[in-house]
Amino acid sequence: MISKERLLDAIREAGAKDYAVFAPVAKDAGVMLEEIDDPASINFDHVLTVNTLKDVGLPRVEALAEFDRDARTMEAIRDDDGKVLVFGSRPCDAAAQKILDAILIGEITDSRYAARRERMVMMTLACSTADDACFCSSMGYGPHDPTGSDVLLLPKGTEFIVRSHTPRGEEFLRELGMTPDADVEGDPPPELKRKVETGGLKEKLDKNFDDPIWNSVSENCVSCGACFYMCPTCHCFDVIDESGLSRGRRLRLWDTCSFAGFTKMASHQPRVGRHARYRQRIMHKFKYTVDNVNLVACVGDGRCIRACPYGVDLCEVLEALVGNE
């Protein structure tokens, strides 16, 4: 067991050992996961951070190379090499990281992402509270689930039980002089009110591409992309050059199948219609990723439900798809 004060000291020490520390801090927009200088600023009371771990491992904008348009040169930018501690993410976000790993690292590896992941330690804070949008347990995870965490901290009263779940976690604890706790039970996890039954969903999606249900479930979607920006597993991106500059950068930017231009080629556009774009998002998460890496690309964090300006509720959509004959 470790007290909050000693935990903050340990994070301070990690900072002194050259870890860049990302942690939840309260901002005007809500609690954000950001790089911090002072562990005293860490917020412990939120349900979830507004942003996700994508901001650490797969940033919304990153430079891959620098170009000189007149000289016609393009110089690649080196991968980052510093150590990173992500403190205080929730179990759903850690689980999402593991899904991103399965997709982005593998037979062919996204070298930028893999370089970051190699030097990232995930110290996750198990949940004490949940809100109406949380449905992680329906996706096979839970408020105290260790998936994706190197170290999991389980709340017990005002203190935390320390559990290491990976060799990297063990090494990190040793580095900071912390010891994992065995055989101690923490506070019980919060009850989730929201539950969604997804049994049979994959089999439905294997067959319902042309079903009219895609028109009805996407009726309220305006293709704004908010769900994608908030989603911890949505990982699509584009590679573009900063335009109109004689010297600029080649950027990797988040991009989404919600946007009409996503599939557009100079010569033609293969995916037309809002329903087709919404269908792609659901299919990618609940069918294609299962086909490819045997994982559902959803952890039940509920951010898409909280963020949607038109009340599109993923759980209702999933239920409609499962129930549709």
Binding site: I103, L104, I108, D110, H235, C236, F237, D238, V239, D255, C257, F262, T263, H284
Partner: peptide, 8 residues
Amino acid sequence: CGIGKCGH
């Protein structure tokens, strides 16, 4: 991306 990651 050309490496099977970006989804396009």
